[in-house]
Amino acid sequence: MSAVEAVAPVRATSRPRRVVSTRFLRSELRLVFGRLRNLAVLAVLAGVPILIAVAVRLSSPDSGEGPAFLSSITDNGLFVSLAAMTVVLPLFLPLAVAVVSGDAVAGEANLGTLRYLLTVPVRRSRLLAVKYTAVVAFCFAATLVVGLVGAAIGLALFPAGPVTLLSGTTVGSAEASWRILLCALYIGACMAALGAVGMFVSTLTEYPVAAMASTAVLAVTSQVLDALPQLSAIHPYLLSHWWLAYGDLLRDPMSSTGPLHGLGSAAAYIAVFGALAWARFAGRDVSS
């Protein structure tokens, strides 16, 4: 410390001017996507389509068994994308989202960095908005990683033949590609709703692992409840109820009923849990 040569600082006399900038968001994105743990999560997700493609290549299954779309892979490699997305949707993807969203606020609180961000100052609502934007970015990144790696490995190992839609119509690879992209975006939006739930949970605790686990448990519980026919009255309100509605995007003609319901439900979840997170976090004592 050069106390001697430390000259008198220029005193900021006037009120500092605040500017709108994406610097903090970019810094947050770098934090999320630069973190080794999150990269490992993405790598695991990327491993699923590779595993599926290689397994199908080695065994060439005959019919009907296994998850949806699996038997179509040998016709067109693009189905690796769909099969992988269907496989990761119930558990892997929610887990990945739970890890990142559960960490959003609780992680900073646990490290103590939260108090320094708040004294910078970062307004609490802005902090939540930036954190949530990064979570959403991760949700879409995770889904697209599965889809893109699936398409790449699928086309590398299998022919790009005609793609059979659910209605029995066949379309070309180009049409199929953008339908699959729509599916990935739809799943990403569903995951963003889970991310909102996760971020709310994350404002409840200072222990990121607790927030991650609770979020994952909520995602799984929602799916369990959705499978109980006795509870059919509440099914449309469940977080995970519309997740599989991307099937509607693979019909001929394409149907938007399910996905629109799903997007509506996701928007409602994001609004409600975003507001809950704000209500909780805006007045919370940061004493970590």
Binding site: P16, R17, R18, V19, V20, S21, R23, F24, R26, S27, L31, R35, L36, L111, G112, T113, R115, Y116, L117, T119, V120, P121, V122
Partner: peptide, 28 residues
């Protein structure tokens, strides 16, 4: 400028990157 109950930074970032993050969060 504040130092509250000891320092707290992201352990996987360098000192410089940690400061850069705090600076980026500052709209002024």
């Amino acid at each position: 400028g504040a130092l509250v109950e000891g320092p707290a930074f992201h352990p996987h970032l360098s000192g410089r990157r940690n400061l850069a993050r705090l600076d980026a969060a500052d709209r002024t």
